[in-house]
Design a binder for these strands. Sequence first.
DNA 1: TTGTACGCGTTATCAG
DNA 2: CTGATAACGCGTACAA
Lengths: 341, 341
Amino acid sequence: MSNLNTVARLAGVSRATAARAFSSPEMVQPATREKIYAAAQQSGFRINLVARQLRTSTTHLIGVMVPTLDNPVFNEQLSAMEQVARQAGYSLLVATTGYDPKREQQTLEQMLSRQVDGLVMTVASSGEQLSESGTGWPPLPVVLVHNESAAGEVVCLSIDNCRAMAEATRYLQQQGHTRIAMVAGPLQQSDRAARRYQGYWQAMTEAGLVPVPLIEMPEHTRSDAGYLQELLDSPQPLTAVLCSNDLLAISLIGQLQRRGIHVPRDLSVVGFDGIALGQMVTPSLCSVVQPREALGAGAVSTLLQLIQGQQAVSRQLDFEIRQGESVAAPRNIAHTRGNYE
Amino acid sequence: MSNLNTVARLAGVSRATAARAFSSPEMVQPATREKIYAAAQQSGFRINLVARQLRTSTTHLIGVMVPTLDNPVFNEQLSAMEQVARQAGYSLLVATTGYDPKREQQTLEQMLSRQVDGLVMTVASSGEQLSESGTGWPPLPVVLVHNESAAGEVVCLSIDNCRAMAEATRYLQQQGHTRIAMVAGPLQQSDRAARRYQGYWQAMTEAGLVPVPLIEMPEHTRSDAGYLQELLDSPQPLTAVLCSNDLLAISLIGQLQRRGIHVPRDLSVVGFDGIALGQMVTPSLCSVVQPREALGAGAVSTLLQLIQGQQAVSRQLDFEIRQGESVAAPRNIAHTRGNYE
DNA sequence: TTGTACGCGTTATCAG
DNA sequence: CTGATAACGCGTACAA
């Protein structure tokens, strides 16, 4: 492999000069600089960033930790992060943790060993103490996305999940719904889902309605309408369902339709996240839209600020209830039930 | 920062012994080893992989280059790659290129500078010569995914796009369709779309039918039904459309439904890729299913083989036509048109 | 089994 | 503006 030594010899200069031609081109005379570039080209030289990293103790590497890549919400976020990072000259080291705290810890360890300049992560529960013990001083810049509160002084970027779901619940109430349930993936795995349930619970209670216990699906990305059947068959059937993410909502709608339960006529469905696909499907998905790009882009910009030694504080971004064809006013149950009997 | 020196001093051994305790634990006595680990823990030591990389000239880093992260097909593939890589002790460096050859070249350059151990990439057109000039010997292991042929001896992993689309076309023909069109994103950007059109063209011609010129959408991930209107309004309207990816298909279906064109009654739609969401939506998407996980996982395993110095050859994986509710037999046009007039 | 000494390729410092 | 030289932190012959 051709290195600076080779290039220097070939160009008839010292290693130091050759090095400068690449790291600080303005510090070397145009003439010699060109000679060096020519020598580099000829010998197929390419600067070795690993060596530079060792010397400068900076990698221009950002570690990204997400629970999964199977949910578009993380992909859309990742996509935004990659763009901002790339434009700032940083690369992304991407790892998934499967909502598993053990893997989160291992991945963290690994990325620290790789000397990343900063870390953007979404953890299952921000409660758990991710020990970055031995990170020295200053502490490694970290930004949590989606997680609302962190143990220490970690910067968080998220929406107010509790308020968001409460607002979605009230939206359904305004449409006339009173028997509303909420479904989620495995609950203990994601503190977001827990907060969203809390919001649902509050909005129901405050409206004098009865909150239903959370319906927990075995998977995060695909729902099983069977878990709902009982509540739909009851004499006072559900008229609306809130889902803790759009994938659950979309798959739920599909299954319901195939069971002969029409959305939104028989049941209104609301999603959460606002993934792009939600607007393409029919019925279009009513959803609590998170600013996914802003979350991703903002996380990286904030991290870059921290890396540059500036201060940064946790922020809550705005969400929006996006209306969609998956929600309608409830039918007069007494009347319509007659059709079935 | 605590380094091996610190640890060695704290444990009362030489730097070399401390180093061995981490890189080759079996070469150091259990007793001293434990002393070293204790000292490491106490001083918050964490091995510096950058230094190790410089020394061993191996990074355990795999560079991943995809056109975009906005299409689930690449995400599903990435997800599979990440799992295999992680289990083999490798990390993923992820970058998008936006179907832009310039960015592809830059990204390649960058990853080579970062000394990745191998590269998995999907390029816009495998025709273009990605010059990894100066890569030395042995050449850096590279696996192309989705691209079917490579300029040199590069290993490719893909399906037979031409045959796949031909088969999808014949499937529609078997359902009784004769007026079939194909839509795609910006064509010159993706050699896959071109091959798929070729397959469509062949299948139409061989069946004695008239292939329609490709309908090119301005975006890869969202279609505009307006481009189809003319063909739908003609006296001999289309009865079926093939899309070069599932996102185009799903968004097309949504737009058509909202224009009062029912899928599949008025128009059958077929997608390509077989993304997970296709089965969730209604109508469920009939699609040419690529083995996305197998492509991703296979690409990384193959790359790992190459990294270990073994041989590997290009492979074509099997695809499958997945039936779905988005396809039905065409109506008797003469009869139904009366309804509109 | 443990210690000594050198090199990986680059950048920073300090003279000239 | 350029050259010589010392780090950066770790792995690994080689010798003890």
